[in-house]
């Protein structure tokens, strides 16, 4: 995959704009946008992680919200037991998501097609109900939690620092995904999507490759969960509701499936649009639903996908 000059420039400009957001909106006395954009960037990470398996691997996971929940519960539960060290929480968020993704993936990847969609959904439902029954940690009421503590100069209580931390993670995740997709491993994953039988015939143990991709994707989404818990200072089983999984899928689609950076754009488009439209009418889903249908019908390649492509690939 290669980026066209246009897309490289857009990414660079986008980055500069994001960096400029906190000082700019503070100057304009519109600090609400710091929180809003922070949340959008978190979902951008979630959508990006989903696109690795969905857009490139062709694994339609309808349960990606599970890792959002797992990552956030890593913060909530550890903080509840007064372990507020951010590094440790982050490690548990990533590690925990990886382990669960490994188990879920090992079971789900035995199936394919619609079965895969439904079983990933069922697995997330399972975790959702576990979350509800965790009475010690608030159950359905959720658990208010404090922000993670890093070294003294990273004080997450400061909205700016939290914003830049999230931005940093977003850039890091984009970089990792970029390297991953363009690596040999990424080629195999994309190959499995194109023609799995052929990949097997060539001699690749596709199951293992796909499982690894599933685990990487899950743990990356775990990072998003970690950040979401920090932003909202709250963890709840609701993060794992199946509607949430659907929304992350929509972000991927809006941006453009299998375009790597498209889902990041998609998260911005989806959440900002939702924010604007819900300000007009409380019945906004009546408009949003049909728009989604239209988008699927007529703009399959998504916002990012509409941009000119480079000859070497679909980046």
């Amino acid at each position: 995959m290669e980026l066209t000059r246009l897309k490289s420039w857009l990414l660079a400009i986008g980055f500069v704009v994001l960096v400029a957001v906190p000082p700019l909106v503070t100057a304009l006395d519109e600090t609400f946008y710091i929180t809003l954009i922070s949340r959008v960037m978190i979902f951008a990470i979630a959508a990006l992680s989903l696109d690795i398996i969905l857009g490139f691997g062709g694994m339609i996971s309808f349960g990606h919200a599970a890792y959002l929940g797992l990552g956030s519960y890593a913060v909530g539960i550890l903080a509840f037991h007064e372990i507020t060290n951010g590094w440790l929480q982050l490690f548990v968020a990533i590690g925990g998501s990886a382990v669960v993704a490994f188990i879920i993936g090992a079971i789900c990847l035995r199936t394919s097609g619609i079965y895969f969609i439904m079983i990933t959904l069922a697995m997330t439902q399972l975790l959702f109900f576990i979350g509800i029954s965790l009475e010690t940690y608030g159950g359905d009421d959720g658990l208010p939690t404090d922000r993670s503590e890093f070294a003294a100069f990273i004080d997450l209580g400061n909205e700016w620092i939290l914003f830049y931390l999230i931005l940093g993670f977003l850039v890091l995740c984009m970089y990792i995904s970029w390297r991953l997709i363009n690596s040999r491993f990424g080629m195999v994953i994309r190959g499995c999507h194109e023609n799995e039988a052929r990949m097997q015939a060539i001699g690749f143990p596709t199951y293992r490759y796909k499982l690894l991709a599933f685990v990487i994707s899950g743990s990356m989404c775990g990072i998003a969960g970690f950040l979401l818990a920090n932003l909202t200072e709250f963890v709840t089983p609701e993060f794992m509701h199946w509607f949430r999984s659907g929304e992350i899928m929509i972000m991927v689609l809006v941006g453009g499936m299998g375009t790597l950076f498209g889902p990041v754009v998609g998260a911005f488009a989806f959440l900002l649009f939702e924010e604007i439209i819900s300000g007009f009418t409380e019945n906004w889903p009546v408009i949003f639903g049909p728009l989604l249908v239209l988008l699927v019908l007529f703009a399959k390649q998504g916002v990012w996908g509409l941009l000119p492509k480079s000859k070497a690939g679909d980046g």
Binding site: E30, F32, L36, R39, G142, F239
Partner: peptide, 13 residues
């Protein structure tokens, strides 16, 4: 919950 928090933020800020 998280949307509630965002909207609360908006109302306040």
């Amino acid at each position: 919950p998280d949307v509630g928090r965002q909207q609360m933020d908006k109302l306040i800020k």
